Lab assay of single mutants.
Amino acid sequence: MEVRTIKVFTTVDNINLHTQVVDMSMTYGQQFGPTYLDGADVTKIKPHNSHEGKTFYVLPNDDTLRVEAFEYYHTTDPSFLGRYMSALNHTKKWKYPQVNGLTSIKWADNNCYLATALLTLQQIELKFNPPALQDAYYRARAGEAANFCALILAYCNKTVGELGDVRETMSYLFQHANLDSCKRVLNVVCKTCGQQQTTLKGVEAVMYMGTLSYEQFKKGVQIPCTCGKQATKYLVQQESPFVMMSAPPAQYELKHGTFTCASEYTGNYQCGHYKHITSKETLYCIDGALLTKSSEYKGPITDVFYKENSYTTTIK
C-alpha cells in the first residue's frame, strides 16, 4: 500500500517557510505537534488534498525554529505562539472599519479597549522592536488589523473576551517599542525636605499616572512627601515624541487643539466601556464603527496623549 502524501510549508514567522512532505494517514499533531492554519487549530486533523502548498504555523520545537521565533517575536515564552494563534482565530472574524481616516474595530468580545489602543497607536510616533509587531502594525494602518490585535493580546497575556485596560495595554506595548531616546527629568520640591531631581528613561519617561493635564504637570502637581507634608512635583525636561497622561476616570474637559487623542471610560472596574476622542479640525468621538463630532467635550476621561518633541522648564 502506497503512502499518500502532500507537500506543505511549516513556519513560526510566515517569513521562513520549511518544506514538509506530510503523510495523509496521520494527523498534523502526530507529525508536527500543535499546528495552526489561519489561526485555526488543526492539530487533530489529517492532511487533505486542499492543504497542498498551504502554510501551517507550528510551535518552535527545534533550534532553527526557536531562533526564527525569537528573532521575529522577541520572546522565548513557549506558550506565546499558541496564544497568538488562538487569538487570531477570533480577531480574523472582527470587522476593521476605516473611521475618520483611522483603522478602528467594530465592537465584539469586549474589544473596546483594543480599538482605543489601536486608534491611539496610529496617532503617536512609535516604532516597535519585534519585527512581528512592526509588520502587523503597518498592515493594521492599511486596514488589516487582525494579526496586530492578536499579537497585542498575546504580548499582554490576554484572551479574547476578557476586559482590558488601555493604560495597561499601552504599557505592555511600550515595553516592546523603541523608547531608548526618551528621557524625563522631574523635580520634587518640599518646604521641609528641599528639592530632589529624578531622571527617568524609556517607558517611565512617557507615562504618568495622577493627572490628565500635561500643562498642569509642567506647572506642578501636589504629591505627598515622605515627611508627610505636601510637596510639588513638576516637569523639568521632556525628550520624547509623545507623552501619555493618565488618571482614574473623572469628568474632564478636553479643549480642541490642546491634545492629540484621549480615552474615555464609562462604567466601573468590573464592567465598563471605552471610547476614543481625537482632536482634528474639530473633536471626534470614535466608538467602534461609530463616529460623532463636537466642538467641545466633557466626560469621564482616563488617558490623554500629547505630541511632544523637546521641553525644558522655565521655572527657576
Rank of each mutant, 00 (worst) to 15 (best):
Glu2Leu: 11
Arg4His: 13
Thr5Asn: 12
Ile6Lys: 11
Lys7Asn: 14
Thr11Arg: 06
Ile15Phe: 15
Ile15Gln: 11
Asn16Phe: 07
Gln20Glu: 11
Met24Gly: 13
Tyr28Asp: 08
Tyr28Gln: 05
Pro34Gly: 12
Pro34Trp: 13
Val42Leu: 13
His48Cys: 10
Thr55Ser: 12
Phe56Arg: 03
Asn61Gln: 14
Asp63Arg: 07
Thr64Glu: 13
Arg66Asn: 11
Arg66Thr: 12
Ala69Gly: 05
Asp77Met: 06
Gly82Asp: 15
Gly82His: 14
Met85His: 15
Ser86Phe: 09
Lys92Trp: 01
Lys92Ser: 10
Lys93Thr: 12
Leu102Trp: 06
Ser104His: 00
Asn111Phe: 05
Cys112Thr: 05
Gln123Leu: 05
Phe128Gly: 02
Asn129Gly: 08
Asn129Leu: 05
Leu133His: 02
Gln134Lys: 10
Gln134Glu: 05
Gln134Thr: 10
Asp135Trp: 08
Tyr138Ser: 14
Glu144Cys: 07
Ala145Val: 04
Phe148Ile: 07
Cys149Thr: 12
Tyr155Gly: 06
Asn157Ser: 07
Val160Asp: 03
Val160Met: 05
Asp165Tyr: 07
Arg167Ile: 01
Ser171Trp: 15
Leu173Pro: 02
Asn178Glu: 10
Leu179Val: 03
Asp180Ala: 08
Ser181Tyr: 07
Ser181Val: 06
Val188Thr: 15
Thr192Gln: 11
Thr192Cys: 09
Leu200Gln: 14
Lys201Glu: 07
Gly202Gln: 04
Val206Glu: 01
Met207Asn: 00
Tyr208Thr: 06
Met209Trp: 15
Thr211Val: 09
Leu212Tyr: 03
Ser213Lys: 04
Phe217Ser: 04
Gly220Gln: 01
Gly220Asn: 01
Gln222Val: 11
Lys229Arg: 14
Ala231Ile: 02
Lys233Tyr: 04
Val236Phe: 05
Ala247Val: 01
Pro248Thr: 10
Ala250Arg: 11
Glu253Ala: 11
Glu253Val: 11
Leu254Met: 09
Leu254Ala: 00
Cys261Gln: 02
Ala262Asn: 07
Thr266Met: 07
Asn268Tyr: 08
Lys280Phe: 11
Asp287Tyr: 00
Lys293Trp: 08
Ser295Lys: 14
Ser295Cys: 05
Ser295Thr: 12
Tyr297Trp: 08
Tyr297Ser: 02
Pro300His: 12
Thr302His: 03
Thr302Arg: 05
Asp303Ser: 01
Val304Ser: 00
Phe305Cys: 02
Phe305Leu: 07
Thr312Arg: 15
